[in-house]
Simulated assay, not measured.
Amino acid sequence: MKMLKRLSAVAAIGCALSVFSLNALANSKLHEKYNALLDKHVVTIDGGASTQVDYKGFKRDQSQLSSYLDQLAAVPPRTFDSWDQNTQLAFLINAYNAYTIDLILTEYPELESIRDLGNFFSSPWDKEIAPLLGKSRSLDDIEHNLIRGDNKYSEPRIHFAVNCASVGCPALREEAYVGERLDAQLDMQTKRFLRDSSRNKIENETLYLSKIFSWYKGDFEKNWKDTNSVFEFILLYKDAMALSSAQVDLIKNGTADIDYLEYDWSLNDTKAAAKN
């Protein structure tokens, strides 16, 4: 029923918005509602290293989130294709994150993890919950086909921008992504994530990294800014991790060990944090 209502709303909005007006909205204006929600319901913690999400607040403002998702769904493929790549990528990252929040709200507060929304036969990331760019899509489709597929964007930093609603994830950014500032936003997200010693750190001769670097290792081996390995990518952000010259040499020489930390799938919710 919810999907039918959204499709009806999409049709109405699609009739009202011309290709010209959608192009005009392509950057910050299209994402204004979402930006306001993030500003209101995402809380910065740990000196800016991460964030928590006030899902109770999002639940109160769910109609505004739904209105934003209807706007995204009303964008036709031909309009999306006319945008520059940064505007496209910002759109897709925002869509992934906003639909993830919307998915959490379907069962909130009666869940402890996004994985509670799956079952033995399918994962929450397989559910077709997002009418986007002409078809119903799952979160996996948005991430692995639209964002990562065919190496169209060749952007490993997206892994610090897409958010799976879990404590182990990189921070949900407290503002919407926009094409004109995307490079700076992705760079800040990468530094923020690597600066967080609960997720990435070096001790003695071992790099302890988030499992993101293991799961998506191949994305860090595609010559982005002349980097072809996780080690080389980390060295680009050595200042964020506060690496000493000796530690840098250890990584450069390939003699550092690497260990991947356990991923915390518990819901990254301000309510849960308040209990601890």
Rank of each mutant, 00 (worst) to 15 (best):
K33I: 15
I101C: 04
S67M: 07
K29V: 10
A24S: 10
Q88T: 01
L89K: 02
N97L: 13
S21A: 08
Q88V: 02
L92G: 04
I101Q: 02
L25A: 06
Q62G: 00
S63T: 14
N94E: 04
N94Q: 05
W83C: 05
Y55N: 10
L17E: 11
D61S: 10
S28R: 13
I101V: 15
A90E: 12
G14R: 15
T51A: 04
N86P: 06
G57M: 03
D46Y: 12
K33D: 15
N86Q: 14
K29Y: 11
K33M: 13
S18P: 06
L38H: 09
S18V: 02
N94W: 02
A49H: 11
L89R: 09
A36N: 15
L38R: 10
I45D: 02
N35E: 06
T100E: 00
C15N: 15
D39G: 06
G48D: 06
D102M: 13
L72M: 12
A74Y: 02
A90W: 14
A49F: 11
A95Q: 05
F91H: 10
A26F: 03
S67C: 05
R78V: 15
S18F: 05
T87K: 07
E32P: 00
A26C: 13
Q85S: 09
N27S: 15
V42W: 08
A90D: 05
S21G: 00
V53T: 14
L89Q: 00
Q85T: 09
T51Q: 03
Y55H: 13
N35C: 02
E32S: 05
L38M: 10
Q62L: 04
L72K: 08
D70C: 02
A36S: 15
I45N: 03
K56L: 11
L22N: 01
L92C: 09
H31Q: 07
D102I: 01
S66L: 10
E32M: 07
F58V: 01
N23F: 01
I93T: 05
A73K: 03
A36P: 02
W83I: 04
G14I: 00
A26Y: 03
P76Q: 14
L69F: 03
Q64P: 00
I101F: 06
F91P: 00
